[in-house]
């Protein structure tokens, strides 16, 4: 087991419960390094979101701990950025003010926050949308705005709960490539939940396959860990490495 010092985020043997009695997970451990994308794959209801909640500090585990650059942050929210399936943009704020929200909440003035956010609009492909309302943007654009807000939380660890599942297939593919490129460029450590096997194989440097059925009394555990050999190619989905990763995930899920 790593000490957590060389990793951005480490979860050590997390045992989680919804009600303090029924176990959702048992001894789930994972690590993610800076610049790395880690995917958690598992069947519906296996407790993926519960694990992410624990990593975000929104729930306290029954046992185990969460370390951020070696520092214990178990049960304390506000240290890692979290983005859910829904973009959760506040409808009454403009895209600029939505993006600035983490900074304003942290105590920065609106002007200072806007000055920080303004140069990012081009980088995130959102030029010209600063004064738009969320309802005026397409699904993909809204998701980009949500990513920008997540980035402006200022944390180098980002948790993503099925971030692309609400998008159409074409936009999903574009957003996936864009996010991987962007997160590696920005040096983010990302933990992504997905139930899409292809998505996990395309995005991840490492995949944690979760097995278990908490509702049937079988707590979820890490079934297998798959390290994906990434190559800088135009289309990773036609490489042998992609197919190997995909086969390994499916084997892990059906084990």
């Amino acid at each position: 087991m790593s000490t957590g010092a060389d990793q951005a985020l480490v979860a050590e043997e997390l045992t989680l419960s919804w009600d303090g009695q029924t176990l959702v997970t048992r001894d789930v451990s994972l690590e993610v390094a800076t610049g790395q994308v880690v995917c958690m794959v598992g069947k519906s209801g296996c407790g993926k979101t519960t694990i992410l909640h624990a990593l975000a500090g929104l729930t306290t585990p029954m046992s185990g701990r969460v370390l951020l650059h070696g520092k214990d942050i178990t049960g304390v929210p506000g240290h890692v950025s979290y983005m859910l399936q829904k973009d959760l943009l506040l409808p009454h704020l403009t895209i600029m003010d939505n993006a600035c929200l983490p900074l304003v909440i942290a105590g920065e003035s609106k002007e200072a926050a806007r000055a920080k956010a303004a140069p990012l609009f081009e980088r995130f492909g959102l030029s010209g949308t600063e004064r738009s309302w969320p309802s005026q943007l397409s699904g993909g654009m809204r998701q980009r705005a949500a990513f920008m807000r997540t980035y402006l939380m200022g944390n180098d660890v980002v948790l993503l709960d099925e971030p692309f599942s609400a998008l159409d297939a074409i936009t999903r593919g574009e957003m996936r490539s864009w996010y991987c490129e962007m997160s590696r460029e920005l040096g983010l450590a990302s933990v992504v939940i997905t139930h899409d096997v292809d998505e996990a194989a395309l995005m991840a440097d490492r995949i944690y396959v979760l097995v278990g059925a908490p509702s049937a009394g079988v707590p979820t555990e890490v079934g297998s860990v798959i390290d994906v050999e990434r190559r800088d190619v135009t289309d990773f989905s036609v490489t042998d490495e992609f197919l190997a990763a995909k086969r390994a995930i499916l084997a892990g899920l059906n084990s």
């Binding site: 929104l58 959760l88 506040l90 009454h92 704020l93 929200l101 939380m153």
Partner: peptide, 29 residues
């Protein structure tokens, strides 16, 4: 109010007042 919205603001370190100001009050408007 969408509880996910409240959780999101909690991950930003928002106080109870900030959650009310940015999420609950506008949602109830």
């Amino acid at each position: 109010v969408d509880t996910d919205m409240i959780d999101l603001l909690r991950t930003m370190g928002a106080s109870r007042w900030q959650i009310f100001r940015y999420v609950k009050l506008p949602a109830a408007a």
